[in-house]
């Protein structure tokens, strides 16, 4: 099967200290992959590397048929200025930016798609609300609507369900299932193992290096989880240069 992303002996980090050490592997097109691991395991770092916001310290990320900008990415804490006076409708419509460009016109067809996206996340009726009046869950729904419009073949979600209630989580998981059915590649950083076991066929368990990367049931077995927990979180300030073979 063809792959969407391939990591080749990838080391990502900050100030020469690795946050992810020597990761190799492939993500197939259409994969639905959960990335799990303790705090500081390098999960968000990996996503930043994939979208190109962080350059590898060594090794490489190969993206097949997609530039970093073709990847839809929902960061853990989107740096949205919630006090900015903009309507839900307008913010969601920004998902079309890749398609229509910075100056292109948004015609009737596209407006219909925007409305569909807003309906799909259950925010119908909220179109004219300023974004500052939304609750945390509604905000997340809105960002998913924007992801829907981005129509990307690879979608990255960084802890999308943190502080989100059951109903919203279920709704958003349905969207993820829909993306999966449409053969899109979805990679999600998650902490809730129940959700992962029920909805994600494959799991990458990280603890600053790869602990396991296989079918979820195997990846999240007791042994692996224990190993992940023993991870040393702090950087060693007196660390030597890494000599592991590249």
């Amino acid at each position: 099967m063809s792959y969407a992303l391939r990591f080749r002996d990838l080391t990502l980090g900050y100030d020469r200290h690795p946050a992810i050490h020597h990761l190799s592997g492939e993500i197939s097109q259409g994969d639905l992959l959960a990335v799990c691991g303790p705090n500081g395991a390098g999960k968000s770092t990996l996503l930043k590397g994939i979208v190109g916001a962080l350059k590898p310290l060594s090794g490489a990320i190969e993206r097949v048929n997609c530039a970093p900008r073709d990847i839809a990415y929902l960061p853990q804490a989107a740096d949205i200025d919630r006090s900015f006076p903009i309507r839900v409708y307008d913010l969601v419509s920004m998902g079309l930016l890749r398609e229509v460009g910075l100056f292109g016109r948004i015609g009737r067809d596209l407006r219909v798609r925007i409305e569909h996206a807003i309906e799909a996340v259950g925010l119908a009726g909220f179109e004219d609300r300023p974004i500052g009046t939304l609750s945390g869950g509604q905000m997340q729904r809105m960002l998913f609507a924007r992801l829907l419009l981005q129509d990307a073949s690879v979608i990255l979600l960084d802890e999308p369900f943190t502080a989100i209630d059951d109903k919203t989580t279920t709704d958003l998981l349905d969207l993820i299932a829909r993306w999966h059915a449409e053969k899109r590649t979805v990679i999600a950083v998650l902490h809730d193992f129940d959700v992962v076991r029920r909805h994600f066929p494959k799991t990458l368990l990280l603890a600053r290096e790869k602990v396991a990367w296989e079918a979820t049931a195997v990846a999240l077995n007791g042994d692996n989880l224990l190993r992940a927990r023993r991870m040393v979180e702090a950087f060693d300030t007196a660390a030597h240069e890494c000599e592991r073979a590249a």
Binding site: V51, A53, P68, R69, I71, Y73, P75, A78, D79, I80, D81, F84, I86, D90, L91, M94, L97, R98, L102, I131, R146, Q150
Partner: peptide, 16 residues
């Protein structure tokens, strides 16, 4: 793009 740069600069950076 000016509005977008104000509301969600991270998103603008990710698409353009």
């Amino acid at each position: 793009p000016l509005v977008l740069e104000c509301v969600d600069p991270g998103f603008l950076r990710s698409v353009s």
